[in-house]
Simulated scan of single mutants.
Amino acid sequence: MSDRAGRMTGLRAILEGAVPRVCSAAVALIAVDGDVAAAAATGELVRYADAEGTLAADRPPARRDSIFDLASISKLFTTVVLLSLAEEGRIALDEPAAAWIPGLDRRITLRRLLTHTAGLTPTRRIDLELPTADPAERLAAMLETPITHPVGGPYLYSDVGMIMAGRLAELTGGAPLDLLVRSRITDVLGLADTGYRPGALPRVAATEWKPERPGPGCVRGEVHDETAYALGGVAGHAGLFATADDLLAFGEALRLGGGPVLRPESVAEMVRDQGAEGAAFRHGLGVRIGDPALVGTPGDGAFGHSGFTGTSLLIDPARRLTVVLLTNAVHPVRGRDGIRELRHAVAGEAQRLA
C-alpha cells in the first residue's frame, strides 16, 4: 500500500468507526501546508425518517462535496466580517455598541461580544417567547436582552451576544449579514457552496427530526438551530452551510494570515489570547485557542471552533495544519454520544500526518 493510500485509509477508518453510531454522515479533510493529505467521506446524508430511527426510503451517500449545517462555526464568519469592517474604520473593538444599537448597556463592546464576556445569557428561545412574531420583531426583542452576568468576565458562552454582533455587522456594513458574508468572504475566496438557507438540495445532509417545522421528515436545507430559524435563517451565531473543501479554504486563509479577506494584523488580534477567564481554553476574537474539546490537549496553540450539529474547524499554524470535520450528529435526535471522541481522533490523525 502506498503512503498516500495508507493516509486515506487511516482517516476513513476513523470515520467509518463512528458512522452510523455517532452520526449518519461524516466528511473530513486534513491539509498540511495547504495540500490535502487525507480526505474521507462516509455514511448517508439522510438515514432516518423520524425520531424513532425508522430508516428513510431514500438514503443518498455522503460525498466530499456534501453540504452540512455548520452551526456555531458560523460565528467565525461573523467575526471575520466584523474585523474587515474594523479595518475600514466602520467600527472599533472597544467602542460602546450602543453607538449603533441605541439602548444597549454602554459596557457592551464588540470585543466583549466576540469574547463572550458581555454578561449576556447563553441563549434565548425567542421563538417560544414570541411565537407569532416575524423575524424582525424577534431580532428587535433579542437586542433588548438585559445583562444578567458580570460584564468583562468570567467567560460565558452566549449565542445572544453573537446575534448582537451579527446585527452590528449589518448596521456598520450597510447590508444584511448574508450579503456581507458573501461579498467579504465567500465571493472573495470562491466558496461557491457556502451560504445561508440552501434549501433541500440533494447534497445537503439532514439534521434533527423537528415535528414543529413544516415539511415531512427530518430538517434538511434549513438551519437546525431554533433561534437562528426563528430569526429567518440568518444570524450571527448560526445559519451557514458549507462543504468541507469550502471550509478548508476559509481555514487556510486564516492560517496564512487572512489574505485576501483580512490583514495579517487583524488575524493576529483574532487569535491572540484576549484574557477571558473561566473557560477550559483561551479565547481570541470569536475563536477558541487550545480547546480540549477539539484537540484533546488543553495547552495546544491550535485555534478554531466547533458546531452543535457535529462540525469542527481546527487550524494549527505551528504544525501547518487545517482540519475540517463535518457531520450531522444531531440526526435524527440530539444528545448522541461520541462526537468529542471523533473530533479527537481526527485531530490526532492530523497531527500524525503533519
Results as ranks from 00 to 15, higher is better:
G301T: 15
A228K: 12
Y229T: 10
A279R: 11
T322L: 10
A206C: 06
G307V: 10
R220K: 12
P202Q: 07
V271D: 05
R282H: 02
G284M: 01
Q274N: 04
M270T: 01
E265C: 08
V223G: 01
I315C: 08
P292T: 07
V323P: 06
A293K: 15
G258L: 06
V223C: 04
A253I: 00
H283N: 00
L254Q: 06
T297C: 02
F308K: 07
V287T: 07
I289D: 00
V271K: 05
R203T: 14
L262K: 08
E222R: 13
P260Y: 10
T297D: 11
A249G: 05
F241I: 09
G239V: 09
V323G: 01
G301S: 15
V219P: 00
R263T: 15
G290C: 01
P317D: 11
L247M: 03
G251M: 08
A249C: 09
A242G: 03
V261D: 02
E277I: 13
D245R: 12
G286M: 10
L240W: 06
R320N: 14
V267L: 04
A205S: 02
A205G: 00
D300H: 15
V324T: 05
D245H: 09
P298C: 03
G275D: 04
F241E: 01
D225C: 05
C218A: 14
G233L: 15
V234L: 08
V234A: 04
T297L: 12
G286P: 02
E269H: 12
R282Q: 02
L285D: 07
R282T: 06
E277F: 09
G290A: 02
A230I: 13
R255G: 02
G299V: 14
V219G: 03
G278D: 00
K210D: 11
L201N: 00
Q274D: 00
D245P: 00
A238T: 13
P292F: 08
E222M: 10
E252W: 10
H305T: 09
A280S: 10
T309M: 03
F250G: 01
G239Q: 05
L248G: 02
D291W: 06
D245C: 01
G236A: 04
P264V: 12
L313D: 03
S306G: 12
E226W: 03
P317N: 10
A242W: 05
G233M: 14
T207G: 02
T207R: 05
T227G: 00
V271A: 06
T227Q: 13
G304M: 06
G307Q: 07
S312A: 14
V271T: 14
P317G: 04
V204R: 11
T311L: 07
G307N: 02
F241W: 10
A205W: 10
A268G: 06
A318R: 15
E265P: 02
E265L: 12
A276W: 05
P264M: 09
G257K: 13
I289L: 07
A230Y: 12
L314A: 05
G232W: 04
E252Q: 14
L254F: 03
A249R: 15
V223A: 04
S266W: 07
A205V: 08
T297F: 06
Y229C: 01
T309R: 05
G286I: 04
R319C: 01
G259L: 14
F303H: 09
D316H: 12
I315Q: 04
G290W: 04
L248P: 02
G304S: 07
V295S: 13
R272G: 08
